[in-house]
Amino acid sequence: MEPFTTLTSRTVVMPAANIDTDQIIPARFLTTTTRQGLGAQLFTDWRYDAAGAARPEFVLNRPESAGCQVLVAGRNFGCGSSREHAPWALLDHGFRAVISTELADIFRGNALKNGLLPVIVDEATSGWLMGNPGAQVRLDVAAGTLTLSTGIHVSFPLEAFARHCLLRGVDELGHLLDRRAAIDAFEQRS
C-alpha cells in the first residue's frame, strides 16, 4: 500500500443516501479473481444505459469529473454487501477518499484496508460540500483534517491505528503476523 499523507483534489458529488455496494459494483462483475480493472464497471448501471452508451447526465460522465479523487456521497454510503470489490472499483477508477455523514461499517473497514480514506463529517460540512460540487478540498491524514476551499478546517475521526497504517503505508496483516506468539499462547490456553 502507498503511504497516504495528504491529498488535494476537486470533489465529485453524489447526494443520494444509502448508495449500496450493488450500485457501486453490481454482482455480475464479481466473478473476477483479481483486484484490478474494476474501475471500468464502477456505478455501471448509472453510468451506462442498457445499450452500453454513457449517460451524459450521470456525474462521473461529465468532463469536470475527470481526475477528481474525492467522492462526496449521501448518508450511509457503502451499505449492503461486504464485497471489497466496492473500494477496489473506487480506487481503480481513481478515487482516494470518500466523504459522507455516515459510512457503512464493513465498507469503511474495507476502504481503510486498501488505502481509500473514509471521511465522516457533520451535516453542515456535508451540506456545504453538496452545495459546492467540484470544490477543491485538502485532506491531511496526520492532522485528521479536511480543509475546504473557504479555508475552513474540519476535523474528522480517524482512529490511531488506522492513521498509523495509512501514513506508513503498512497493512494489518503484518501487524497480525507480528503477534504470532500471543496467538500461539491463546490457542494453548483455550
Partner: peptide, 19 residues
Amino acid sequence: GIGTTEVGHVLATQCLLQR
C-alpha cells in the same frame, strides 16, 4: 461479515483486528 483482505488475515493468522 468481513472483506476479502480480512479473509486473508483469518486464513493466515486465524485472527482479526477489531474495535
